[in-house]
């Protein structure tokens, strides 16, 4: 098999859209990159190796398209400062002045079981979308696209230290969201 059916490509569309939305959080931009991805895929379908999964192949193309958009954005000077401030406030509220937890994290009951639950994944996706934009962008690059910290700093044109700070805030915010909307309910 040297080619892939254009119809099969279209079937992957909704998956690709959700993938792009998590990273870009702008329906129009997401729509654009998915469209570009499908066009590129159809144009290059002879390059599709029969042994790989269509989805894996498409996501590979999509990642590049997403990175192009993010790279362009990183070059724009205003990486929304106001948003960064909100995040600081949120994180500061988690700890007292003396650096101890304002409300120490409680044990999460059977987190492995949550991973078997479809509703948990909806909550997880929503929590990712609710993260402040800067955090979400870096976090998704790190965990969802599995890029190295060096690559992320480079792509977003930020210092390594800044990168660690942003990733840490993303995890704190995500943890709060999961605690409030999922694990806390079981207590």
């Amino acid at each position: 098999m040297s080619a892939i059916d254009p119809e099969a490509l279209q079937q992957q569309r909704s998956y690709l859209l959700r993938y792009a939305m998590l990273q870009l959080r702008d329906p129009h931009l997401a729509e654009d990159v998915v469209q570009e991805t499908l066009v590129a895929a159809i144009e290059n379908r002879s390059g599709f190796a029969a042994q790989s999964q269509p989805r894996t192949w498409l996501v590979g193309i999509l990642k590049h398209k997403i990175m192009d958009v993010l790279r362009k954005r990183a070059r724009e000077p205003q990486l929304s400062v106001a948003e960064g401030e909100d995040e600081n406030e949120l994180v500061d509220a988690l700890f007292r002045q003396n650096g101890r937890w304002a409300s120490p994290p409680q044990n999460w009951n059977e987190p492995e079981q949550a991973m078997e639950n479809a509703h948990f994944w909806e909550v997880f996706e929503q929590c990712n979308r609710r993260m402040p934009l800067n955090s979400a962008r870096a976090f998704m690059m790190r965990e969802f696209m599995e890029m190295s910290t060096d690559e992320i700093c480079h792509e977003l044109s930020i210092s390594t230290t800044n990168c660690w700070v942003i990733l840490h805030r993303a995890r704190l915010v995500l943890r709060e969201c999961l605690d409030l909307n999922w694990f806390g309910n079981a207590r």
Binding site: L22, W101, P104, Q106, P111, F124, E143, F144, R175, L178
Partner: peptide, 26 residues
């Protein structure tokens, strides 16, 4: 000495695992 941070440590590990599983769950 800190139970809150021990819970946090476990939760971070879970968050890493879940985030890397997410592409398969979309």
């Amino acid at each position: 000495m800190c139970r809150g941070c021990r819970n946090f440590e476990k939760q971070l590990a879970f968050i890493r695992k879940a985030a890397r599983e997410l592409p398969r769950k979309l």
